[in-house]
Nucleic acid binder design. Structure first.
Lengths: 202, 202
DNA sequence: TTTAAATCTAATCACTGCTAAGTTATCAGT
DNA sequence: ACTGATAACTTAGCAGTGATTAGATTTAAA
């Protein structure tokens, strides 16, 4: 033991998750080894195993963390634009912008994960809290315009696919960085989202 | 040398690509090591390096292969439904169905790749042949309805994002297998694609 | 028969996940 | 303040995987 401070870190669990997200942003998903993170926390390679059963459990915890942050952002948007016509566009923008700000979170959340659920049928709802936020925002509007229940789910899925696809495209390469720096690019992103919004409800 | 046949395989390059795609379908992206593929081709671990400078070059070649097959499928659809109203839906279905049939090709093509290009601005066109197929199918229609040039690109991107997002969702987990087995599910997939097609041109 | 390409053998190097067994800090109960 | 239990952490090492290269060997073709 070289370093007295090293013992009883106190917050190693949180520290590992924090460093995990940071490392993800710097090196991508492949830089995510428990050894690496342990080193970054100034702790031995075996220490993480006191807090996570194995690497998979750590990844799951990290996915939960990311999902929590994403849903938090969506929830704020939904509350803020509640009852406004533009809420669907704003929700879409929030979804995409979360990943513009954290491009590496996308692949962590949606690649080779048996933990985060995809949604394609109604019975899957509830397993993906981000999708549920979109649903909570859209359902009142769809119902208000008398869209039949069956069609609502299809519309929801199409909306999700649209923003999810945009997020996927944006996370590839350095498109995200361009969007972060160029407000003009951000504007054209909103235009893309608006394409399918159809005629304004009169 | 145990096996006379092993020498001068003759087609090791193609064989490696072929086994690569096969292994991808069985074990996913993580099963893709040159050692593994060499073994599957009945060849030593060093043999692949006579045909590919390093692993990255091999992956790039594999991506090219996948992109070629995807574009081939899209091209057939585009020719088949040329001048029909339903062409956009059919192109979208082809895009998604390619990945329904080959779920693991999606992540190979679109994860951590500096080789396959994403498209978000007009000047990027030409770098993604799959997107270009969608464009070739849509542009005549959009022009026919007098959509301004600037708006066309946004509509195209929205279309791509929609089908790309659907493909991404479908490739997660085993949704693809359900779509392969359940014709009913396939039908609801088409419904989702139709959601944004708007009123039929009259 | 020469030559170059294709392949093999053998080894190096750098990772990683994980575990066992020992060490230290903390804290509750006395 | 003492003590023992426990949680947090360390060192050391195993086992496995993978990329890559050097140098020898074989085949096919000119």
């Amino acid at each position: 033991m070289k370093n007295k401070e090293a013992y009883h870190h106190g917050n190693l669990q949180k520290a590992l998750l924090y460093e995990g997200l940071k490392t993800l942003g710097q090196k991508g998903e492949d830089g995510l080894s428990l050894r690496e993170l342990a080193k970054r926390c100034g702790v031995s390679v075996a220490a993480p195993y006191a807090h996570f059963k194995n690497k998979d459990e750590f990844i799951y915890a990290l996915q939960d963390e990311v999902m929590r942050k994403l849903v938090e952002k969506l929830e704020i948007t939904r509350t803020k634009y509640c009852e406004e016509k533009s809420i669907l566009i704003e929700m879409g923008m929030s979804y995409v912008l979360y990943f513009v700000e954290n491009p590496h979170h996308f692949s962590l959340l949606f690649s080779k994960s048996e933990h985060v659920q995809a949604v394609l049928w109604q019975e899957d709802s509830g397993k993906n809290p981000a999708f549920d936020e979109l649903r909570k925002a859209a359902e009142p509007i769809l119902s208000h315009f008398g869209v039949p229940q069956v069609a609502q789910h299809n519309i929801l899925l199409a909306m999700w696919a649209l923003v999810h696809g945009l997020a996927a495209i944006v996370c590839l390469h350095d498109i995200a960085s361009r969007l972060r720096e160029d407000p003009e690019a951000l504007h054209s992103l909103r235009n893309i989202l608006t394409v399918f919004s159809g005629p304004e409800p009169q």
